[in-house]
Amino acid sequence: MGDVALTTPALIAIAAKYSNIQLTVVTRGNFAPFFYNIPNLNVLGINLKRYKGIMGIWKLYKDIAKLGPYEHVIDLHGSVRSRLISYFFKWKGVPFEKIIKGRKEKLQQTRKYNKKLNKLPHTVDRYLNVFKKAGFDAPIRKGPWLNVDGESKIYAKDYLKSIGIDKKAGQWFGFAPFAGHALKEWSFANCKKLTEILLEEFPDCNIFLFGGKDEAAQMEILRDGQKRINIVQGGSLGIRGELGIMDRMDLMIGMDSSNVHIAALLKKPVIGIYGTTHPISGFGPFAQEDSGVLQVDLACRPCSIYGNTKCWRGDHACMEMIDPLDVVRRIRFLQNVNTLW
């Protein structure tokens, strides 16, 4: 989901510079809210369950082609599915360009020995480079890069009312303690300690825990009956409602996960806790790759691009060496630098 959201700065840049072209984005239907209010952009929201196997990909190509004709195909995914669709279009005379993911360089970063830790292009820059190869070069526009429309705000307002919050008061901290892979997550003990420290250090704050349906029980333990801790369960809100709530946060804390990337695209100050992964691989919080990352220097980092691996040391030190008080210190730093609240 984070990779999809990160396409928006590139799409906004292209739409702003080339106002005479029409863009069609093909993505999962539930990701459509990321692209609302981008000029001259249509979204084809699909259900991938309808397009299984080679024949399913052929059917998807035909469904996309019906919305044409197209002059270019821009493959920002680089998957087997997207490449096959691109070749189908090429067979019909439509040129395509595909993303260069830098897999070789990323492998050199994540191998156990003789790492090469050169900073790689951010994912957003890789997206823009695909358009550039197709003849469409454009500079990044000033954020925010996600649009929160009126309906999203209504969803958020209704949800907040349902949990007993009628209006905003004090500081609102979002906290997303989960990630797609366990190795990218802080220990539950540190997450619990952080919520306790935040309540103590910031007496006027409200904490909003972001997570999915499967994490509801863990979020209840983190809340521990505290009135100033609230649960935002994404499954019941949808992306549109969750965007509306996240847009009201003063700060977002999380792992290297979609929530941190989305908050950064909303131009909210973020604190991303990075361990297994590393922002030099191109997945730092957009436009906050320095101030928005909390990490420690270890020779074994990074050991993975996505977090789907095992800890070579066996102690998860890259995450566990980060103390909850480090998060508090970073919050105060951001307050002083940006005079945010």
Score class of each variant (00 low, 15 high):
residue 234 G to L: 15
residue 233 Q to G: 12
residue 241 G to R: 02
residue 262 I to Y: 02
residue 224 D to R: 13
residue 236 S to N: 04
residue 257 S to T: 12
residue 222 L to H: 07
residue 263 A to M: 00
residue 239 I to Y: 11
residue 251 L to N: 07
residue 240 R to W: 07
residue 263 A to S: 12
residue 234 G to Y: 09
residue 239 I to W: 03
residue 234 G to Q: 12
residue 227 K to D: 11
residue 235 G to Q: 05
residue 262 I to R: 08
residue 226 Q to A: 14
residue 243 L to Y: 00
residue 232 V to Y: 14
residue 258 S to N: 06
residue 234 G to S: 15
residue 266 L to A: 08
residue 247 D to Y: 15
residue 250 D to I: 13
residue 262 I to A: 08
residue 239 I to M: 14
residue 230 N to L: 15
residue 239 I to R: 00
residue 261 H to D: 06
residue 225 G to Y: 15
residue 259 N to Y: 10
residue 261 H to Q: 11
residue 249 M to R: 08
residue 243 L to P: 06
residue 250 D to R: 07
residue 250 D to P: 03
residue 242 E to V: 00
residue 253 I to T: 06
residue 263 A to I: 03
residue 222 L to N: 03
residue 252 M to W: 11
residue 222 L to K: 06
residue 261 H to R: 10
residue 226 Q to N: 14
residue 223 R to G: 09
residue 267 K to D: 13
residue 239 I to K: 12
residue 255 M to W: 09
residue 256 D to Y: 14
residue 247 D to C: 05
residue 247 D to I: 01
residue 222 L to S: 05
residue 255 M to Q: 07
residue 224 D to W: 04
residue 267 K to W: 04
residue 255 M to K: 03
residue 267 K to G: 00
residue 248 R to N: 11
residue 249 M to G: 06
residue 242 E to H: 02
residue 266 L to V: 05
residue 230 N to P: 12
residue 263 A to R: 05
residue 250 D to L: 10
residue 256 D to M: 03
residue 267 K to L: 10
residue 248 R to L: 08
residue 249 M to K: 04
residue 227 K to Q: 15
residue 258 S to L: 09
residue 228 R to T: 15
residue 253 I to K: 01
residue 226 Q to S: 15
residue 267 K to H: 09
residue 226 Q to E: 12
residue 265 L to W: 12
residue 257 S to D: 09
residue 255 M to I: 00
residue 230 N to E: 11
residue 258 S to D: 13
residue 235 G to N: 14
residue 253 I to Q: 02
residue 251 L to F: 08
residue 224 D to L: 13
residue 229 I to K: 01
residue 256 D to C: 09
residue 248 R to P: 04
residue 237 L to K: 02
residue 252 M to L: 15
residue 246 M to S: 09
residue 263 A to D: 08
residue 222 L to R: 05
residue 229 I to R: 05
residue 263 A to T: 13
residue 243 L to C: 02
residue 233 Q to F: 05
residue 224 D to A: 13
residue 233 Q to T: 06
residue 237 L to D: 12
residue 228 R to D: 02
residue 248 R to I: 03
residue 223 R to Q: 11
